[in-house]
Every structure is written in structure tokens, then in C-alpha cells.
Amino acid sequence: MTDEGDSGSEATGSERDIVTDHLDDRRERLEEYLDREELDAVWFAEPNSFSWLTGGSNVVSRGADLGVAAAGYDREDGWVVVTDNIEANRLADEEVPEAFDVRQTNWYESSLADGVAGETEGEGAADFEVPGLDSVDAAELRQPLSETDVERYRELGRETADAVERVARELEPGDTEHEVAAALKIALATRGIEAPVVLVGGAERAQTYRHYTPTYAELGDYALLSVTAERGGLHASTTRTVAFDPPEWLAERHRKAQQVETSALAATRAVARLDGTADGVFDNIMAAYEHVDYPEEWREHHQGGAAGYAGREWFASPGEDAPVETPMAYAYNPTIRGAKSEDTVLVADDGAEVLTATGEWPTRTVTAWDHEFAVERHEILHLDAE
């Protein structure tokens, strides 16, 4: 997130307004949380929640559960970041808005948890283990999306789709899954997007496995390309299908997967209007599989769920009691053996917007089977085999 101090350059008035709106939203949510829990401060060190709060990143090692800094809101001191002397200047210069007071400890004297504990006066909570502090479920605070989240999501979704589609259009049957996965990672990286999940399944393996992690197998007659992309903490998931000489059943299964996905999105809006929970959406997903004559396919793979500052904030599953919120991003990913339909879609009370779209890939309008709801879904792209 940009502000007056970012990257050593002065931000525009518009960028300052975005930062202000972002922090106003976070302050309102956190003050309500502190009042409800009777706390004085709350802290976030998990990378997705740090990004949710600051708009920046606290990640140095991608394999670590926690970042190198904790960002917090304190009733008395306002916005605070705690880190060590290795990271303090960089975070202040490049990662967090000017509104944050960056406080440092010496790396050789104190852990991050000790630093946070030392900066907390009164009662506090954190999303990681800190002596004397309660635990906070950050996922609840991250939902629903704010206006600034939605604007950033639109950019991420469009650029993620553009990267995947540009790679997809250049595919040939003899390409290996590993080669395609490498191309996807590069295309995303050049747009400043991380790729925590990249799946590429050629014709043989896409029919065998629901998670088609890349191998040296050639694509063959068709391929599924699936990614979950991340930038600024937000996650966007999408799948594209490319066909050279596809089996006769592929088009039918793909369209039926589209039907299930559209029905899941329709149910999401309906359940949200009733202040319902995720298991209500899942019940509709099972019914949609029954409607398309594949009643047992839901058992073979998870169905996705709410997206946002995690690949999935929750999964639609039996008994899942997470509240269904709007406006919120949802990424459902129904599969019917060898076929998959998936995009990240913004669901609001008055409609839905496909975020992972460019307008340059073939689509068709799909209507939910049991709701008055329709959305554009991505079709199979047919390419000539050379």
C-alpha cells in the first residue's frame, strides 16, 4: 500500500485517500472488536493478517508461519508495528503507511513475541502465541471485504487471469506440465504476484487426480491450468481449460461443473441474505451435483468457499458454521472427473462480478438451476495441435 513515505517518493492525493479509507475501515472493525472483548490492543503477525491491516508485507521467508513483524492497533497509541532492528527501517520505508509507528528491538535480545508483550499495556490479543495475551481469530475480522479491498481485488483478479490466459494460448500438446507451470509462475511474478498454488494437469493426469501437481508428463489432448495467486495478502484462484483433441465427454462435464459452480454462487447470495452459514451453501452444492446427474462427485474434492486474505477463508462443507458475508470474494471449484470450473467472484447483495476475467476468453452465460441468478463462465479454449 502506498503512502507519503513509501519507496522514498511522495504519494498522490488519490493514493493518500486510499490509505486513509483503508485505515478508517480497519480502525472501525478493530475498535468494535476491542470493545466487545474488553481489550486494549490487538496484534497480527501472520502474513495474510499483517497485509490485511497494513497493506504491506512482513514476509522474508516464504516457509515461515509468521512474518518478521507484528502490526497492531492500540487504544492509546493507535497504529504500531513491532519488529527487530534488521527490518525496522525497510518496513517503515517500503511496507507500511506513515500512520504506523515502527518500534524495534535488537534481534539478539528479544523475540517478536517478547517485543509485542513489552509494547502491550493492559489487556491484549494476538494471532500468534504471545505471553499474557489472548488469541484472536483474524479471519472473522477480515470479512466482509471493504471498498479498498474490492478495488485491489479487481486489479489482482484481472492481472491473474491475464497471466494465465497468455500462457494458455501458447500451449502445445507436447509441452510438459512442469514447463507450463514454470511459465505460469514467471507470468505471475512479472506482475508482482506470488503463486502459492500452481497446478497443471495434462489429459491423462487431469482425469486421474483432482490435485494435478505438475510432472514431466506431456499435456496430450487437453489440459487444466489452475492457480491461486496472492498479492498484498489477497488471494485469487482461477482455472482455464485448453483443448487440442479432447475426449467427447469433456465439453459435457465442463458445462456441468459450470452449472454446479453457478449454483454455489447463487446459493451464497441467498444464504447471505438470510444471515446463514456455509453449510447452507454446501447443501445446495450437493443438490446441484444431483441435478447434473453426478451425485457423488462432491466427495472426490473440496468445493472451495470464501476467498480473501487466505486461499480460502472457509470451505463449504458439512456442518461448517462460518457466516456467509457480502460483499465478499468466493472461489468455488467443482470438479467432475477430468473437468473443473473455477474463478474468484465478488458476490454482493445485488449481484456478482467475476474478478478473474479479462474479457478476452470465450465465455457463456450460465443460469443457476434453482435461483434467479446468472453469471458468465469461462469456456474451453480450443487450439490447433501443431
Results as ranks from 00 to 15, higher is better:
G319R: 07
T344Q: 08
D343W: 04
K340M: 13
K340N: 10
P323V: 02
A306F: 02
S341Y: 08
M328R: 12
L346F: 13
G304Y: 05
T326S: 06
G304S: 12
P334S: 12
A352C: 07
G351L: 03
G351R: 06
M328Y: 02
M328I: 00
V324Q: 02
A339F: 11
P323F: 00
A329C: 09
W314A: 00
E313I: 14
M328C: 10
D321H: 11
E353P: 00
E320Q: 05
L346I: 10
D321N: 14
P318C: 07
T344P: 14
F315Y: 04
D350Q: 13
N333W: 02
S317T: 09
V354F: 08
S317A: 14
A339Q: 06
T344W: 14
D349C: 02
Y330M: 02
Q303G: 06
V347Y: 13
F315S: 04
G338S: 14
D350E: 07
D349W: 01
Y330E: 08
Y330D: 01
L346W: 13
K340Q: 15
W314Y: 05
P334Y: 10
F315H: 04
I336S: 00
Y309M: 05
E342Y: 02
A329E: 08
P334I: 06
A329F: 10
K340V: 14
T344M: 11
T326M: 11
M328S: 11
Y330Q: 01
A306Q: 06
D343T: 15
T344G: 10
A306L: 03
D349R: 08
V324R: 02
E320T: 07
A352M: 04
G304F: 06
W314V: 00
A310N: 07
L346H: 10
E313N: 11
Y330R: 04
E353M: 08
A316F: 13
S317V: 11
Y332H: 07
T344C: 15
A348I: 11
A329G: 11
G319E: 04
W314E: 00
T326H: 03
G351M: 04
E320P: 01
E325N: 13
N333M: 13
A331C: 13
E342V: 12
A306P: 01
S317D: 15
D321R: 12
D321T: 05
A316M: 03
E325R: 14
Y330H: 00
K340E: 15
Y309A: 10
G338N: 08
R337Q: 15
V347P: 06
E320N: 13
E342Q: 15
A329T: 09
P327A: 15
G311R: 10
G311D: 06
G319Q: 12
L346Y: 09
A306G: 03
G338I: 09
K340L: 13
M328D: 05
G338Y: 02
A316G: 01
E353S: 12
A339D: 03
R312V: 08
E325D: 07
G319L: 02
